[in-house]
Computed example of a mutant assay.
Amino acid sequence: MPTSVPLILASASPRRKQLLTEAGYTIEVDPSDIDEPEPTPGTLAVDYVALLAWRKASAVARRRGNGLVLAADTACAVEGEILNKPEDRADAERMIRLQEGRDTKVLTGICLYRAERDEWVGAVEISVVRFRVLDNAERHAFLDSNRWAGKAGAYGVQDSDPFVSVARGSFTNVVGLPMERLTALLQNFPNLTR
């Protein structure tokens, strides 16, 4: 059940906005616009997404001074390698080939930050996505479509891409915002919504 308190979404993601709106949340979009550096070697994906979500939320909270800020960061992980948004077509192809025929993790860090009290809570949700092997024609058609642009791991499960499916965990997490986890955070930390 959505909170009656409006959420300030620290993201320009149309997918996150759509998920929240469809679930009945009142939101205001205010992207954090922070730098999102690539992870350093050895960084765990769970730590990476948690830190970026907190950095986004705290940046918007400091700028605004009041309100309940929601931030999220999503990345994919394959055998310890973190896959963010591809830089170009070649990078998208590298990511797709790396994931083909495997189960890969999708991690989303979320952070709720009450600006006026400087209080926050965060969590990381992990889902598993199954990738089938593509033939060359399928792979090139997908890359030519540019549907990979701006998406962690170079794909979007919400686009009904036929080569990927959610094997375990939250579908909305793979889209970019684990709605079940958000609901649990809001219920478990009601002081944030007062």
Rank of each mutant, 00 (worst) to 15 (best):
R194M: 12
D47Y: 02
V49M: 09
C111H: 06
P2V: 03
A71C: 15
D88T: 04
D161K: 05
V133N: 12
W148A: 06
K151T: 07
T108W: 05
N173G: 10
F131S: 01
S165M: 04
R64W: 05
L20Q: 03
R15S: 04
P31E: 04
R64D: 11
V60A: 06
I126R: 12
E119R: 14
S58C: 10
L182I: 00
D33Q: 08
L186R: 09
V78W: 07
D91K: 13
L134Y: 09
A23Y: 04
A12T: 13
G169L: 02
S58T: 14
S170R: 00
R97H: 04
S170A: 03
M1H: 11
A154T: 07
Q18G: 06
V164S: 10
V46Y: 08
R94S: 05
D135S: 10
D30R: 14
L52H: 07
T104D: 09
A90M: 10
T26A: 09
A77D: 04
W148L: 10
R139T: 06
A45G: 13
K17H: 15
S160C: 08
G156I: 03
D35F: 03
A77G: 01
L177W: 06
E36V: 01
I96C: 02
Q99W: 05
D135E: 14
G122M: 12
I34D: 03
F142G: 06
M179T: 09
S145Y: 12
D159Y: 00
R132G: 02
V121P: 11
T26E: 13
A45H: 08
I34M: 07
S11L: 09
S170K: 06
G42M: 08
D47E: 12
A12W: 15
